[in-house]
Nucleic acid binder design. Structure first.
Lengths: 345, 345
DNA sequence: CTGTTAGCGCTTTCAT
DNA sequence: ATGAAAGCGCTAACAG
């Protein structure tokens, strides 16, 4: 209703004190007389005063706003990630600008610069595909902490949270072993990406750890796609001694493996154990029964938020630190998870 | 790096002009000499100046920030909603505080008040269950436009966007009719909620419109749940003349109907046409093949954003207006949509 | 076309 | 324990 919001001087005037005193009350300073404090607080309620954080920010030249840019909020993985961040940010008394880049680097650039103008104290970025170091350089250089999540940006000297592919693969294989499997394949992908290498290494080490000799034929290379999954199964069908289960490079491959098995009259989950890395590529399509390995997105979000907050409070970003190793969990999606080996058809 | 960001006076000084002139350049005023403008713009680039929108907001006592609070970002419906809002908000040159209340009214209250202190120009709220008019009253009273989406808050005198249940049901029935169906059931729910009434009315009117006599037995009441869907099918199996398709009260019922059909050896989508209202209750579980009627969440988000923006620009909220009727679309989820009647088994 | 001046609402020495 | 005064970075009259 009011043309101008009631301000600190309004209530100072009404209380017959100076605005400095009111400011002290607002900050909960112990220096102020109990009576004055009460009077002031009463007036604050009566006049419907609301603190103007923008003015305070200007004066102190710092803010309690953190920026979050997510490449695809539509993908439930990233939505969960955002929720995790939200939790930490709020409980630290901050607010967040949260924007969706839709995998557009242009959009992302605009949004980041807009957030910068609005005075964010830190930024968490789940980068759009194709993001370059130069996209975040100005921000980082100006002393605003930046934390990258989920995806790496080559050349960017900022803290980054990535999932631990090695540990994830290891966990998956241990899971299969614990269910009685010994002939376990690794399906999908080619040795041309870091991700493939890390996951395969986890596969090898977990098998070695269990004294299971590695059958090199069981590492079945194929396109890291649904079609690739089908192809891998076709390859496998020719083996004299077939695997009883597989770790798939990602969920797309896992879906393809399901397809391939079905067309060979094997029921996935029942006739063959599958664990897929959950990269949530196809999260929007129907999810078949599957056991997946994935990072806990909310947990990752929380950690990311904690990290920016820490850097903000530290007053300076230590741009060299590259953080990794997010805990991975084995979880079941709906339907048929991998069964004990004995129960398989 | 710099202790203090370079400001308008720094570049004014460097350019040998006054800060007012720089300000004018920043605002793209035509009053300023071409040469000066160029010089200033050059300096802006060189000195790495970034506009301090907070200061401007303070001076003008208005902001280009809008607040969005969503009850559950984890639910893909609301995530899409948020994305739709994001689109409009950004392209209008605004930024958004976006927070997740997790269905907690307390959390929601905190978040709203925090946003208020941070000077939002408007608020879009997808209210947590149990939200009361008093939760938004102070904001609205202070002249900040508030728009409610998806859920109503009784007693709140603010603009509200709800889905049009009547039109949705009508669209669904027309769709089934266009596929050749004439014996169409309405499954799930009891006549105790407004939603049920509206959807049933749409069902009736669409049938009437096509001169299809209504068979009251085809309105099969049951719990509005998955179990209720199963029950409805069981009931239907006893009919001498069975329906060939159904509109289900919501997706939960629709899933149950699928279950029920399968246990009677009827393949849903192939042997029986199903359209469900997509309330996205089970969006996080596997989605069976289904044709659904739902509001387009992104579209709804966009409309909500347009509405707040309009009210912000109008300079005053017209608190009486209650907007409804969001367009509903018939869409197919993955798998088997409803077939032409002739193709049914 | 450009400079001067006066704040926006708050915090923060520095006095008192 | 409280007040006076200066100033954060910007805009908006109003002069010139």
């Amino acid at each position: 209703m009011n043309k101008t919001r009631t301000s600190i001087v309004d209530i100072a005037h009404a209380a017959g004190v100076s605005k400095s005193t009111v400011s002290l009350v607002l900050q909960g300073s112990p220096l102020v007389n109990e009576k004055t404090r009460e009077k002031v607080n009463a007036l604050i309620g009566d006049l419907g005063y609301v603190y103007n954080r923008g003015a305070a920010n200007l004066r102190q030249s710092r803010s309690k706003i953190i920026g979050i840019v997510v490449n695809d909020l539509t993908n439930s993985f990233f939505a969960e990630l955002a929720v995790g961040m939200d939790m930490m940010v709020q409980s630290a008394g901050y607010v967040q600008f949260l924007a969706h880049s839709g995998e557009s680097v242009d959009r992302q650039r605009e949004v980041i610069s807009s957030m910068r103008e609005n005075g964010i104290a830190g930024l968490i970025l789940s980068p759009a595909r194709g993001t370059e170091a130069s996209d975040i350089k100005p921000l980082a250089d100006s002393g605003i902490p930046v934390v990258l999540v989920v995806r790496n940006v080559p050349g960017a000297k900022v803290s980054t949270l990535l999932s631990d592919n090695y540990a994830g693969a290891k966990a998956a294989i241990r899971h299969l072993i614990s269910l009685g499997h010994r002939r376990i394949a690794f399906m999908g992908g080619f040795a041309d990406t870091a991700v493939f290498g890390e996951r395969l290494r986890g596969y090898r080490d977990a098998l070695a750890e269990a004294n299971i000799p590695i059958n090199e034929k069981f590492v079945i290379h194929s396109a890291p796609s649904r079609a690739g999954g089908v192809a891998a199964v076709e390859r496998m069908m020719d083996f004299a001694e077939r695997p009883t289960s597989a770790l798939c490079l990602n969920d797309a491959v896992a879906f393809g493996v399901c397809d391939g098995l079905r067309s060979n009259n094997i029921e996935p989950g029942k006739g063959f154990g599958i664990v897929g890395f959950d990269d949530v590529i196809e999260a929007k399509t129907a999810v078949p029964a599957l056991t997946t390995v994935s990072v806990d997105p909310q947990g990752m979000g929380q950690r990311a938020a904690q990290l920016v907050l820490k850097q903000i409070n530290a007053g300076q970003t230590d741009p060299e630190s590259i953080v990794t190793s997010v805990r991975l969990v084995v979880r079941q999606s709906c339907g048929a998870p991998v069964k004990q080996l004995e129960e398989l058809a």
